[in-house]
Each structure stands twice: as C-alpha cells, then as structure tokens.
C-alpha cells in the first residue's frame, strides 16, 4: 500500500479533558515491564519468546509489529554495507570522534552522532525523503504523468531529488554491492527499484549529472517491500552507530586534542573590520 502524502493532523482528542483522562493512565498495546518478572512487547513475551530472536528482528518488531527475518537480515546488511563508514571526516562521525579527542563519554559521543545523522545532505532526511519521492512519483505516474516531467518538477520545486546526487563525490560506490546483496535475498527486481534506476537515467543526462546514491537504492528496495516512510525512518535511526564507535575509540586512544586541530590562521574571516563597542 502506498502511504498518503503528509498533511497536518489536527487531533480531535485534545485539551484539558484529554489530559485529565490520561492522568496516571497510559493505556497501551505496545509494551510494559511487570515487576514480578515479565516483559511484553506488542503482545508477545520478551523473556520467553522475542528476546531469543536476533536483535534486528526484535528492533523491527518493536517498530511495526511485523515478523520478517528476511527483511531484518536485509536491514542489517544495509547497515553493515552502507551506513557504518568508520571515517572521522564524515560529519556525524566527526562529532563522535571530537567527543573522543575532548575526553567525553562514549555514549555522549554516540548520542550526538546519532542526532547529527538527521541531516539534509546525507543521513535520515535523504533516507526518508528518497522513499517518499518514489511513492509520490509512483502516484503521479498512476495518474498519467510522464516520469521525465515528475523528475523535473521535483527538481524545480525542491532544487534536489532525495536519493540522487552526493556531496564530495558523484558516484556512490555502495550501490553495486548493495544490489548484489539484495539479489542474494531475492530482492532487487521489483517495480520501485526499477523506477529508482529509471529516475537515475533521467538525472544522469541532466546538467547536474546526478547519480543515484545509496539512499535512493535502499528506498527502491524498501518500497518494493511495502514499507512506510515512518517505518523506514525509525529503522534507519541507529544505522550509523557501528561507524561512529570506532571513530570515538580511535580519537580517545590518541593524544587529547589531536583530531584535526586548526591553527588560528585557518580562520578565513569575512566579517566587519575591527571596531570598538560603544564608539560612535
């Protein structure tokens, strides 16, 4: 099912009456811990059932209640192949590495790195946006639009197409290994991944020469699994951590302050000339 476009949701269930009803009263089918020694997640026993499954399956079950070990293996593969680069120059990793060089804690390093991964040029926004774009493009095609027009309209309106183009380099070396991995799971032949490659053909010929990036390829594969942008976003939230921890550990093990120190003359000042506060 193709999810609906995001619109503001004005809840009818609101105000002091709602707050009063919910006071000391959280009603949930999601999960809970019972002090006598039981844990339930989405209607299943954790200690006797869910807890014995691979962590990624537990994670995905917690997100949407779906049990799909093949898809869990796919997500795990995406994380290992494409989102865990251990390079401290990458901005989210650099934050974790800087936390090491200033002798902060490992968890503070990861927390900040995860927060920064919700970026626009890379990370969570393109990950979510690429899936959203494919679903919107598909709806427009179903309404009779031509793909070229859909792509150009997207570019004109938003000045980018999530899932295509990349800062620093143009080609994305991760796409080919990902497609090979997807093939090993019987994925990669669906309608949406084909659409993703069709869009790349169009953008490659444009002045921008955009190529499909990893977010676009993953989005095509995930769309063929029928996942919603919400699911996709939640599942990707922790996808960068395996690259961050090595960056933190590396800089923690080297002299304090040694990660990319900048001498004073590396500031290229473009502001107002020197002046005195309070002078006329």
């Amino acid at each position: 099912m193709t999810p609906a476009h995001r619109v503001p949701i004005m809840s009818e269930d609101k105000g002091p009456e709602m707050l009063a009803r919910c006071e000391d009263n959280w009603v949930t089918a999601m999960g809970a811990w019972f002090p006598e020694g039981r844990v339930v997640l989405r209607g299943k026993d954790v200690l006797n059932d869910l807890g014995h499954r691979p962590w990624m399956e537990y994670f995905i079950y917690g997100i949407n209640g779906q049990e799909d070990s093949r898809f869990a293996r796919f997500v795990e593969g995406v994380w290992a192949l494409t989102t865990s680069y251990p390079d401290p120059r990458l901005w989210n990793n650099r934050v974790a590495a800087l936390a090491g060089t200033t002798r902060s804690t490992g968890v503070l390093a990861l927390a900040a790195g995860i927060a920064v991964s919700e970026a626009s040029l890379y990370g969570l926004r393109p990950i979510r946006g690429a899936l959203d774009f494919l679903y919107r493009a598909d709806r427009k095609l179903a309404d009779g639009a031509i793909l070229e027009d859909v792509v150009w309209e997207e570019l004109r309106t938003y000045r980018n197409v999530f899932g295509y183009g990349r800062p620093i380099t143009s080609a994305d070396e991760r796409v080919a290994p990902l497609m090979k991995f997807a093939d090993s799971l019987g994925m990669g032949k669906g309608k949406f991944i084909q659409l993703a490659f069709e869009v790349e053909k169009i953008l490659k010929q444009s002045r921008l020469k955009y190529q499909m990036n990893i977010a676009g390829a993953v989005a095509g594969l995930v769309a063929d699994e029928g996942r919603t942008p919400d699911d996709h976003y939640y599942m990707a939230a922790l996808s960068f951590v395996a690259g961050m921890m090595p960056c933190y550990i590396d800089s923690l093990g080297k002299p304090g302050g040694s990660l990319f120190p900048l001498r004073v003359t590396r500031i290229d000042y473009k502001g107002a000339p020197p002046r005195r506060w309070g002078a006329a």
């Binding site: 934050v95 800087l98 002798r103 927060a115 920064v116 970026a119 626009s120 040029l121 926004r125």
Partner: peptide, 20 residues
Amino acid sequence: GGSTRASALIAALSVGAGNL
C-alpha cells in the same frame, strides 16, 4: 550537513562535556 538545529547543540554539549 543541514542537521536539525537541536543536534548542533547536542553535539556541542557532548563534545564540550569532556575532561579536556
């Protein structure tokens, strides 16, 4: 990278928290 504004402060807090 166009990350959320809050993440900039979270990053500053995490890195600025250290003992160096």
